[in-house]
Amino acid sequence: MITLFRKFLYGDYGEIEGGTLATSSSREWPLWEVFIRSKQGLDHKHVGSLHAADAAMAIENARDVYTRRMEGVSIWVVESKNIHASNPDDANALYDPANDKIYRHPTFYQLPDELKYM
């Protein structure tokens, strides 16, 4: 059903031999994912993607596209094909072990209301 499209989706790297598609005839610049730290003290957050010939160009382009209004103080770029992703279809099985362990949460424990600072 998805074979109509030539591009492989995020996280498909490695599932196709060699990591590239034989049918891709165009000389498109590779795709990069952009992560931005909006201010010191916060995590980098995924903001989008762009095409660039290399990492230096990807950072410069990310600067021009994603930080025009002072949205960031630090930029990461990762070539999209290097991002490995979990499969959403496996979500049930993958996160199942966490489901029945409510004793990991502090609210699981019944303690007297009078008890302070705990």
């Binding site: 109509l4 499209f5 030539r6 591009k7 165009s26 498109e28 989008g48 993607s49 762009l50 596209v65």
Partner: peptide, 16 residues
């Protein structure tokens, strides 16, 4: 560019 990127997540290339 934001929009082309969003479309690319659906499996079409920029060049296409």
């Amino acid at each position: 560019l934001y929009l082309y990127s969003a479309a690319e997540t659906l499996g079409i290339t920029r060049d296409e």
